[in-house]
Amino acid sequence: KAVLCADHGEKLQLFCQEDGKVICWLCERSQEHRGHHTFLVE
Rank of each mutant, 00 (worst) to 15 (best):
K1F: 04
K1Y: 11
K1L: 03
A2C: 07
A2P: 10
A2L: 11
A2K: 14
A2D: 11
V3E: 10
V3M: 14
V3D: 05
V3P: 02
V3Y: 08
V3G: 14
V3A: 12
L4A: 07
L4S: 06
L4Q: 05
L4R: 09
L4N: 15
C5G: 01
C5S: 01
C5V: 00
C5N: 00
C5M: 01
A6V: 07
A6G: 07
A6F: 08
A6C: 08
A6H: 03
A6T: 06
A6N: 05
A6P: 10
A6K: 11
D7Q: 15
D7F: 04
D7I: 11
H8W: 00
H8R: 01
H8P: 00
G9P: 03
G9V: 02
G9S: 10
G9C: 06
G9H: 05
G9Q: 11
G9A: 10
G9T: 03
G9L: 06
E10R: 11
E10D: 10
E10Q: 09
E10W: 03
E10Y: 11
E10F: 11
K11W: 15
K11N: 12
K11V: 10
K11G: 11
K11D: 14
L12T: 09
L12G: 14
L12S: 15
L12P: 14
L12D: 11
L12K: 12
Q13L: 08
Q13C: 03
L14R: 14
L14P: 08
L14G: 09
L14C: 07
L14K: 13
L14Q: 11
L14D: 09
F15E: 08
F15L: 06
F15R: 09
F15V: 10
C16N: 05
C16K: 05
Q17C: 11
Q17L: 04
Q17H: 06
Q17R: 10
Q17P: 05
Q17I: 15
Q17G: 04
E18Q: 08
E18I: 04
E18R: 05
E18K: 04
E18Y: 02
E18T: 11
E18G: 03
D19S: 04
D19C: 15
D19A: 01
D19L: 00
D19Q: 01
G20A: 11
G20K: 05
G20D: 15
G20T: 08
G20W: 04
K21L: 05
K21T: 07
K21N: 11
K21Y: 11
V22Q: 10
I23W: 02
I23Q: 00
I23E: 02
I23R: 04
I23V: 07
C24I: 01
C24M: 00
C24E: 01
C24Y: 01
C24L: 00
C24S: 01
C24V: 00
C24P: 02
C24W: 00
C24F: 08
W25D: 13
W25R: 15
W25K: 15
W25I: 11
W25F: 12
W25Q: 14
W25N: 14
W25E: 12
L26F: 02
L26K: 14
L26N: 10
L26C: 08
L26T: 11
C27V: 00
C27Q: 00
C27H: 02
C27P: 02
E28K: 10
R29F: 03
R29I: 06
R29D: 05
R29E: 09
R29W: 02
R29C: 03
R29H: 13
R29V: 05
R29N: 13
R29G: 07
S30I: 15
S30L: 06
S30M: 12
Q31D: 06
Q31I: 10
Q31P: 07
Q31W: 02
H33A: 03
H33C: 06
H33G: 01
R34D: 11
R34N: 10
R34L: 13
R34Q: 10
R34P: 04
R34E: 10
R34K: 09
R34G: 07
G35T: 09
G35V: 03
G35L: 06
G35S: 09
G35Q: 06
G35A: 08
H36V: 02
H36S: 04
H36W: 01
H36F: 00
H36P: 01
H36L: 02
H36E: 04
H37K: 15
H37V: 06
H37W: 02
T38E: 05
F39A: 15
F39Y: 14
F39S: 15
F39V: 14
F39E: 14
F39R: 15
F39T: 14
F39D: 06
F39W: 08
F39Q: 14
F39K: 15
F39L: 12
F39N: 12
L40M: 15
L40F: 13
L40R: 11
L40S: 14
L40I: 11
L40A: 15
L40H: 10
V41L: 11
V41W: 10
V41A: 14
V41P: 12
V41T: 13
E42V: 13
